[in-house]
């Protein structure tokens, strides 16, 4: 399926259980229309990864995910030769090699004969594809999610740049591989460090912030079906207030959802200060934060 308009994107995403603001929808639409990668930034837990999943679901494509970390290299992201397998095969077919060279009289003749067989060892059979190569060579179009790209090293970023501008990679032993279909690429970043300008230039930039109260209410209602209207209102109201406090880590949407789910599990009907204090661990991930919220709980709930 393809997106035809901004409204279409918004509708599609909401069917995939993702409520997108108009800004998000516009930029996702552009990204799909121009086949440019989408760079998503924002605080942790506002649904950056979730957006990629929703896009994949809406477009009916597979999602291939590459999680970045310090030290990630081509061998782990693109492809790797399976050396162990190659060695094993060499041992097994040793006899066969013997047959191949048995008729040759000189050493150089033998070497030539083996060279003819070289392809057998550097073939698809021994290549281990990693996410990036998978995304490029997949016969069906896919959504490629490159998660937390800011955690990777600058070298990897430069390599990514090459891939994202041409959508082709070269494997020395096999030749250049061009993308069968250009994947829908989503990069996410937590702003741990700045991403190079060159990479940014190739991407459409989208910043997802904490949602406003109305949007968050809608999200909770959709993701936690069966929750009571009054409880949602109270819950979201409290979260917004907690977010405005001076905390080490602000609760994001995922924490709101966790909180709502745990209240349901506890079969709580009404959010009282006591209940809130008992369940604070779900939304505050630091002890100092918990203390701070506890102190002003009367104002929050």
């Amino acid at each position: 399926m393809k997106f035809t308009s901004v409204e279409d994107v918004q509708k599609g995403l909401s069917e995939a259980n993702y409520i997108a603001s108009r800004e998000i929808a516009t930029i996702v639409f552009l990204s799909a229309a121009t086949q440019k990668p989408l760079l998503v930034e924002g605080p942790a837990g506002v649904g950056k990864t979730e957006l990629a999943k929703a896009i994949a679901k809406t477009l009916g494509r597979d999602l291939i995910r590459l999680q970045c970390y310090e030290g990630l290299d081509e061998a782990k992201s693109l492809y790797e030769w399976e050396y162990a397998k190659q060695l094993l095969y060499t041992q097994i077919v040793k006899e066969k090699i013997h047959d191949v060279i048995s008729e040759s009289h000189t050493l150089s003749e033998a070497v030539d004969k083996i060279a003819e067989q070289e392809d057998a060892f550097f073939s698809e059979r021994f290549i281990q594809t990693r996410p990036l190569l998978q995304a490029i060579s997949s016969p069906e179009p896919v959504v490629l999610l490159i998660d937390e790209v800011d955690k990777s090293d600058p070298e990897f970023e430069a390599f990514l740049l090459e891939l994202l501008s041409d959508f082709q990679v070269s494997i020395p032993e096999l030749g250049t591989r061009k993308a069968v279909h250009i994947p829908f690429v989503v990069l996410t970043s937590n702003n741990y460090r700045d991403i190079s300008d060159a990479l940014k230039r190739r991407c459409l930039y989208l910043y997802i912030d904490y949602p406003d109260q109305e949007l968050e209410t809608r999200i909770v209602k959709m993701k936690v079906p069966g929750i009571q209207e009054t409880l949602v209102q109270k819950l979201v109201h409290a979260i917004v207030k907690i977010r405005n406090m001076d905390l080490k880590k602000k609760p994001s949407i995922s924490e709101t959802l966790d909180w709502a789910r745990s209240l349901i599990a506890l079969q709580v009907q009404d959010l009282t200060p006591e209940v809130a204090i008992d369940t604070l661990n779900v939304i505050c991930k630091y002890r100092a934060d918990t203390e701070l919220v506890k102190q002003s709980i009367a104002k929050i709930v």
Binding site: L30, E41, D194
Partner: peptide, 26 residues
Amino acid sequence: SQLQLINPVDEFQFKAVLNTNFVKTR
């Protein structure tokens, strides 16, 4: 080129296009 894909009279969309292309850091 992207402006041709959207409805430029809708200011919201217009601004979003400019925003995503010109602002690459928060």
